[in-house]
């Protein structure tokens, strides 16, 4: 049997939360830049999910008799060095970016929240150790560490996948394309959870000092319950802001890894890899380099705008 006061608090907070989210949404759509960011972002998500189905071409389909064509009605961005429709390749790149962005964000936020909450709630030497770990990882140049992890993890992960495929008979696991994704996910998630953990810890520590938590604690509500029911929902706003802003840098990092030739392997589509593949002909066919580059920049910029907008919407007091 649970004590009544806890329900009171919770219900009161539910109401407040609802109005908080409603306000936030109204503030978000009122901001023009945030709306622009949101629209571009939604367009990107739509293209990534449905674009390949709508395109008349297959992003892997080569036409060796239509190599390196300039832009035309049939191929708005022309074709690449293997006669593949470049617009379709760009859309496939969007799918890769979305896939990596969403998965890594989930992994980062998951790890970050778990570790941050643990540190804040348990305190003491565990807190010190966890936060020191965060500091250590943050002192690595992120991208350099991601490059290194990517280069070292590839073989162990492949071995693991091969073993898994043999044990379970799931042949689809033993497929280079998935392995590339898993390696990229792992590398990016491992370097990126630190800031979220720090943020969550800070939020929880400041919330814990507030009355409704103190009273809940005083009435003997169990720790995990407090964390899940009260602390996390209240720390959610800043985490969403951080995750949105982080989404842009994850997409950027994936493209950078692929640009160096260690991320998504051919014939998979990644904007970074497209830039590398075509850098040799930047004089002759500049659009093959410019289009993936500009698309990538627009998505990152949309994510940043959206992050800024969300920040303003969820923390109105932070605005100048």
């Amino acid at each position: 049997m649970e004590p009544t006061p806890q329900f009171d608090h919770s219900e009161k907070w539910e109401i407040k939360t609802r109005s908080l989210w409603g306000d936030a949404f109204r503030r978000l759509v009122r901001s023009k830049t945030a709306l622009l960011g949101l629209s571009i972002f939604l367009l990107f998500v739509f293209a990534a999910i449905f674009g390949l189905a709508l395109s008349p071409y297959d992003y892997l389909r080569q036409d060796l008799y239509a190599l390196e064509q300039g832009p035309s009605l049939a191929h708005p961005f022309g074709t690449d060095e293997l006669g593949r429709d470049f617009l379709t390749r760009i859309i496939a790149g969007a799918r890769t970016a979305l896939f990596v962005g969403v998965f890594v964000t989930i992994l980062q936020v998951g790890c970050g929240v778990l570790i941050g909450a643990t540190a804040a709630y348990l305190g003491g030497w565990i807190d010190t150790l966890l936060m020191w770990t965060v500091d250590t990882i943050l002192s690595f140049p992120h991208f350099l560490l991601a490059v290194f992890i990517n280069a070292t993890l590839e073989n162990p992960i492949e071995d693991a996948m091969v073993t898994l495929a043999e044990r379970t008979g799931w042949q689809w696991v033993n497929n280079t394309v998935y392995i590339d994704y898993v390696v990229v996910f792992g590398a990016l998630a491992m370097v990126g959870w630190g800031p979220i953990a720090r943020l969550v810890r800070g939020q929880i520590l400041s919330l814990r000092a507030q009355d409704f938590i103190l009273s809940a604690e005083a009435t003997g509500v169990q720790t995990p319950r407090i964390v899940v029911r009260h602390l996390l929902p209240n720390a959610l706003g800043p985490v969403i802001v951080a995750a949105t802003a982080g989404f842009g840098s994850i997409v950027l990092a994936e493209s950078s890894l692929s640009f160096l030739g260690i991320g998504i392997q051919p014939p998979g589509a990644s904007w970074g890899a497209m830039i590398t593949e075509n850098l040799g002909v930047w004089r002759e066919r500049p659009h093959l380099v410019a289009v993936p580059g500009i698309t990538l920049s627009i998505i990152v910029f949309a994510a940043n705008f959206l992050g800024d907008g969300l920040n303003d919407a969820l923390n109105p007091q932070s605005r100048h």
Partner: peptide, 23 residues
Amino acid sequence: PRLIVALQQMWQDNLGIEVEIKV
């Protein structure tokens, strides 16, 4: 790299075999 991707496509088209590339 592009030679390999083109070969991969031909095996796919003419034999129906999906060859995985390992760098």
